[in-house]
Design a protein around this nucleic acid. Structure first.
Length: 221
DNA sequence: GACCAGGCACATC
DNA sequence: GATGTGCATGGT
């Protein structure tokens, strides 16, 4: 029997198709988006990114030079704007100080070292770090988010209490170790999250139903 | 008007 | 170590 992660991946890819995911014109935009989307709906992040573009501020050195209140106003639509302005600033301070603002330079280092560096930045936790590694730097790293956790625990594939790393190991060990697949996998999971596995779930129509043992249940069936 | 959204740090016990 | 709380906007 193949790992459930791989079964889920194939099933979702077949039913939903390739996602071509993480909106963003440049790696830097993706990185900024990763901070702005913390516990926030993506549509709100879009407004904030649009503001930054309009102000021609979607650039490490420009943001670096912005006054704190200017940055806050630009990203306000993304919510938690004071906190996020600080977090973004911390991240960009690091990017400028260590890599002269170049994501290309950053990408030359290996993923485990970058992960440590990112986690040392105040305001960057495991998910944000992994999102940057995968979607901005194209490193083969699995991103685990609230949807992943919800889906896996509701189907009984992992203990409810499992932390980020345990869930990440559990799922990643069943998937090929390449950025393209891990990107696609997380994108498919978010798609399921958006449409079927919210707080109020629609399990009956979910494409993952075939993976339930006969008679269910996902916790909400 | 309540509830929710692709986290994280911090306080308190 | 475990549990609880603040942070804020915009859509349903």
């Amino acid at each position: 029997m193949r790992p459930v992660a791989h079964e889920a991946y194939e099933l979702l890819l077949a039913s939903l198709g390739p996602q071509a995911w993480w909106p963003g014109d440049t790696p830097f935009e993706v990185m900024v988006g990763a901070v702005l989307v913390q516990n926030t709906a993506w549509r709100n992040v879009e407004r904030a990114l649009e503001n930054l573009k309009q102000a021609e501020a979607l650039d490490p050195h420009v943001i670096h030079g912005l006054a704190p209140t200017e940055l806050e106003e630009l990203i306000r639509p993304a919510g938690y704007f004071r906190i996020k302005a600080r977090r973004l600033r911390n991240l960009i301070d690091y990017l400028v100080a260590r890599y002269d603002g170049s994501l290309e330079a950053m990408r030359q280092r290996d993923a485990s070292q970058l992960r440590e560096e990112l986690l040392a930045v105040h305001g960057i936790g495991p998910e944000t770090a992994d999102s940057i590694l995968l979607y901005a730097l194209h490193k083969p790293v699995l991103v685990v988010d609230a949807y992943t956790h919800r889906i896996w625990s509701r189907h009984g594939w992992i203990d409810d209490e499992a932390d980020y790393h345990r869930l990440q190991e559990e799922i990643a060990s069943g998937l090929p170790d390449d950025a393209q697949t891990l990107n696609e996998f997380h994108a498919l999971i978010v798609n399921v999250g958006h449409h079927w596995c919210k707080r109020v779930p629609k399990c009956h129509e979910c494409p993952l139903r075939p993976l339930l043992p006969e008679g269910g249940p996902c916790e909400h069936l």
